[in-house]
């Protein structure tokens, strides 16, 4: 789980010079800048979009069913209509909110719980570590999609339940990553030093281990973001995801698959939204990782040509 080759050994040494402003760094990397803008847009749309579209996302007009994207039908007709005559544009906006409100909490929950448990287990080792790892094994060995289907059939497919089940399914990934990092760090000199001074283990974990493990964990989280959106979509395919009249991108793709031959825009556009968002998140995560790593940050300050050997994605990441 750990890749020692790329681990900075002097990570705790504070930099003497003030680090360059992050937006200046971002401006130097065109790819990351575009990704940041796309993500910012997606988040803005997700948060504020519903204020502008009103009930457009659910307003049906059976007479306007399956209109192709065109410029003639006004702003809401730009991306065409679905089979119920609803504006696909308005639905994409509405779905952005639902999608993120499922994906972000799910990822945050599993990130928080998984990393906390993992660092705790890795730092203390012994029985605690063993138990935590076996719990992770148990969760991982359930086929997650199928268990999600069972649980959602039993407890009704509400957005909250989807968040919970997706979060639980992904906890082991963070748990294992965090454990590996913290098990490796606990024998380091600076941790030993802190321990000899009688620092409580809680503080050591938060002050010394977390800052080093965080970049890796955040990278895993970005990739999980993609996994959660895709799983949510697969659930809709199996008929048990987000329930209408709520709408998510995954649900739009799943419902639109019947119309791939006749009305491509219904399934393709939300698919593009998923791909754009996750690709942007991945690119930006790689950049953040570099920018938050004191040992590597200098690379970003160099002109483009010379900073060739940056990893797009660190090897620690997990699917």
């Amino acid at each position: 789980m750990t890749d020692l080759a790329s681990r900075p050994t002097d990570a705790v040494t504070p930099s003497r010079t003030r680090p360059p402003r992050w937006w200046l760094l971002l401006g130097r990397d065109r790819g990351a800048a575009v990704a940041a803008v796309v993500l910012a847009l997606v988040f803005l749309v997700a948060v504020f979009g519903r204020l502008f579209i009103g009930d457009r996302a659910v307003r049906q007009d059976l007479g306007a069913s399956l209109r192709p994207p065109s410029l003639d039908q006004g702003f809401y007709g730009l991306l065409g209509t679905d089979v119920l005559g609803r504006s696909v544009l308005a639905r994409l906006v509405d779905a952005a909110g639902t999608t993120l409100s499922v994906a972000v909490p799910a990822v945050l929950c599993s990130l928080l719980i998984g990393s906390a448990l993992g660092m705790w287990a890795g730092y203390h080792g012994g029985v605690r570590e063993n138990v935590a790892m076996r719990v992770a094994d148990v969760i991982l060995s359930f086929p997650s999609l199928l268990i999600a289907v069972v649980v959602l059939y039993v407890f009704a497919p509400s957005a909250l339940n989807i968040v919970l089940i997706l979060a639980v399914a992904r906890i082991p990934v963070y748990l294992r990553t965090a454990r590996a990092e913290s098990a490796e760090l606990r024998s380091r000199l600076f941790v030993d030093a802190a321990r000899t001074f009688g620092t409580p283990s809680r503080h050591i974990i938060v002050r010394h281990i977390l800052p080093i493990a965080l970049p890796t964990l955040l990278t895993v989280a970005t990739l999980d973001f993609c996994f959660v959106m895709l799983t949510e979509s697969s659930l809709s395919f199996l008929g048990i995801g987000i329930q209408p009249p709520d709408v998510s991108w995954g649900l739009m793709v799943a419902q639109g698959r019947q119309y791939l031959q006749t009305a491509w825009w219904i399934a393709v556009l939300p698919g593009v939204a998923i791909v754009l968002t996750t690709v942007s998140a991945t690119v930006l995560a790689a950049w953040v990782r570099l920018a938050t790593d004191p040992a590597q940050r200098w690379r970003l300050t160099l002109p483009r040509k010379r900073r060739g050997d940056r990893a797009a994605v660190p090897p620690e990441m997990i699917a």
Partner: peptide, 11 residues
Amino acid sequence: SMTAASIPDFW
């Protein structure tokens, strides 16, 4: 590769 990793499989 990033696109491939984020396409819904049933689609």
